[in-house]
Design a protein around this nucleic acid. Structure first.
Lengths: 189, 189
DNA sequence: ACCGTCAAGACGACCGTTCATATTCTCGGG
DNA sequence: CCCGAGAATATGAACGGTCGTCTTGACGGT
């Protein structure tokens, strides 16, 4: 059984490198150097670069804290807003440079790896379903006034968020996220 | 003066390669092979890989046909919708695999090249302004009912479009674009 | 002959992965 | 407890290749 800490070091390092440089812009040597372990060790823990990226993305998914969307101590719409605010705060920690890993990998890897595209697709689907579930609750509670269905809204909001995050990555400020919240409030207030 | 057709061949080839594989996933050899010219010739026409990418992005920007947004033969909201429909038809030609080059390069290059990030930023800004101008006209014509300002709407729509296009790249179908139009119609009808 | 253009191969570096060797761990026997 | 053997794990260099860019010589036009 390999020492767990090397594997963790690699995942942490890869998280940072993939966010900073993307998948193809990151070399295994970059990850190894950042983790402070020899390059060959990467292959003791991961079959290949993609397997490492998939692990990193799983870790990223956990950090999105989708369980927040099930916290019934908060009403549906404020709960949903808190979720996006949480994501916005995370982006701010890195000066908006990181974007969203789902979007980043989706952009970069969809034509390169069917496995990774499928992973991104699944993750975005899970997220969309969780958001839609909250909107279903809002509709049942009678607080949704828009004629759009919870499904339409849920799908749209996740995509619009990805677009706003991408724009924030380009502008390196929060204006696109603020713009998202303006429309969020308009649609859901 | 070098023959323009080699340069054009390179730009066309790079357009295809960058769309298919992204910037870092595309090698100069890929572009040269696709163009049917020798690798060394690339540097007769472009200072480096980035300069080629910038030229390709300029070409891409022209193909977005923003001038459609100034066609006063059509009312503002139908004109704007036609613009996005035009973009959607272009995506369909490539089975939604290409995404939007602004978004793709923004994602991949924002942390790698300040020059390219600035180019993407400028392009997205121009587009946003053009969209906002149409919405200003719609507001003046009294056909905008949403309390959101033309500026808020313009910024949001461009970002939401980018997010929808990215999602379509992952799902490889038009559902995310259809979802965009549902909300577009809800906000602007 | 001179100049500008082009192309092919070289340059110095990096790529992801493998593999032979070194190191560490585990287990059983004395 | 100690030791040795074997298994498991780690390491660093090599592998076979690609990368973006540069350089030099060939070629054609004037």
């Amino acid at each position: 059984m390999p020492r767990p800490s090397v594997r963790e070091q690699l995942v942490d390092a890869a998280m940072e490198c993939f966010h900073q440089r993307g998948f193809n812009g990151t070399g295994i040597q970059d990850i190894a150097r950042t983790a402070g372990v020899p390059k060959g060790s990467v292959y003791n823990h991961f079959e290949n670069k993609e397997a490492l990226a998939a692990e990193v993305m799983d870790r990223y998914a956990v950090s999105r804290k989708l369980e927040m969307l099930q916290d019934e101590g908060l009403a549906p719409v404020p709960r949903l807003r808190a979720h996006f605010q949480y994501l916005a705060a995370d982006l701010e920690r890195f000066s908006y440079e990181r974007g969203c890993m789902f979007g980043n990998f989706g952009t970069e890897l969809s034509n390169q790896s069917d496995m990774m595209r499928g992973e991104v697709d699944s993750r975005l689907d899970l997220w969309t379903s969780a958001v839609t579930e909250v909107l279903d609750q809002a509709r049942e509670a009678g607080t949704l006034t828009t004629p759009l269905t919870p499904g339409q809204l849920g799908r749209f909001l996740v995509n619009a968020w990805e677009g706003a995050v991408l724009r924030a990555k380009v502008t390196r400020n929060r204006a696109p996220l603020d713009g998202f919240f303006d429309v969020f409030d308009s649609l859901l207030a």
